[in-house]
């Protein structure tokens, strides 16, 4: 009996709350936005989620946000929880990105991002191929020539195996005709240790998001051979890989998803909310500060992009022997 009464009382409260929420909707699109971050506090996805809250509140789009972190294995631990426990919930978003696509494939997870509802791609970070200042490699060609001569003699540092850094190296190798599994990739547990290995000339080259290397490059301790962006970037004195004759382009993108089973209206509400945020001066300001390239893409376009990207990453991971 008590259970039933509590349930009724609960239902009444929820009703009252949603009524208030509806009234509030005149001023703001969403009262409380729930964001699911399948990573630990402090990382890239978490920072993006928390910056979204700041931008949305600043632009008066939401009253506030509730952020839940479920860390583990590049998102592979959090995804099942988002799919099962958040199903059909409106006003909810999950952060994810290219890393998660790769991690799900590499871990042979039965789940994929096609099971959640794509809302928008938000930011991207292009990768950079760098060498220590004293390296004999002056151009991408020097690097690829050495790679072609003997890939085992060119150790390249980056983040965990199968991550975006490893994927880019695999793509470069493939583009210049070196068998991908032959490359000698040294995985470090993060940007810090990888840069330390580069500064100490323990490895021949390194790959990571440009942001990780930027300050070291400015200080003249590392040299950028090329970046993986689609065009030259202001303030970076290096060609794109394409310009350097390696037909590869890669963005380590981050985006948001709604849970599975949301109604078309709920989906549209989230697409509108995120589109408004992405166009707000508050958001652009944050992107500038954090060195994120805004590469907004919403709704159906994003869903198509995701499909193509998943195929591309699966192929390269297969080439690398990881999938």
């Amino acid at each position: 009996m008590i259970t039933k009464r509590t349930l009724l009382a609960g239902a009444a409260t929820v009703g009252a709350l949603s009524a208030f929420g509806f009234q509030g909707a005149n001023a703001q699109t969403v009262d409380v936005l729930k964001i699911f971050v399948p990573a630990a506090p402090g990382g890239g996805w978490d920072q993006t989620a928390r910056s979204m809250e700041v931008a949305m509140r600043g632009a008066k789009l939401i009253g506030g946000a509730q952020i839940t972190n479920v860390p583990g294995a590049g998102g592979a631990v959090g995804l099942p929880q988002f799919i099962n426990q958040w199903k059909g919930q409106g006003n909810s978003l999950m952060m994810a990105g290219m890393v998660m696509v790769g991690s799900l494939i590499a871990n042979k997870s039965p789940l994929s991002l096609s099971q959640v509802t794509p809302i928008a791609r938000l930011t991207g970070e292009f990768q950079a191929l760098v060498v220590p200042a004293g390296s004999p490699f002056k151009t991408v060609k020097d690097f690829t020539d050495a790679l072609k001569a003997d890939p085992t003699k060119v150790p390249v540092a980056g983040g965990s195996a199968g991550g975006s850094d490893h994927i880019l190296l695999g793509m470069i190798a493939k583009a210049v005709g070196v068998p991908a599994p032959k490359v000698s990739y040294v995985a470090f547990s993060g940007g810090g240790p990888a840069i330390a290995a580069l500064l100490g000339s323990q490895v021949a080259a390194g790959i990571s998001g440009y942001g990780e290397f930027g300050e070291q490059v400015k200080a003249g301790k590392l040299r950028v051979l090329a970046i993986s962006a689609d065009k030259r970037q202001l303030g970076i004195d290096a060609p794109t890989l394409k310009e350097a004759g390696v037909d590869v382009e890669l963005f380590n993108w981050r985006g948001v998803f709604a849970p599975p089973g949301v109604t078309p209206a709920q989906r549209k509400e989230m697409v509108d909310l995120v589109s408004k945020m992405a166009a707000s001066p508050e958001w652009l300001e944050i992107c500038k500060k954090q060195d994120w390239t805004p590469i907004t893409m919403v709704g159906d376009d994003y869903a198509k992009f995701l499909e193509a990207e998943t195929t591309r990453i699966r192929d390269i991971l297969k080439d690398l022997g990881l999938a």
């Binding site: 294995a73 590499a106 195996a161 490893h166 995985a187 470090f188």
Partner: peptide, 9 residues
């Protein structure tokens, strides 16, 4: 857990 060098569990 996942091996850092090969990405395998």
């Amino acid at each position: 857990g996942i091996d850092l060098q090969t990405g395998q569990a």
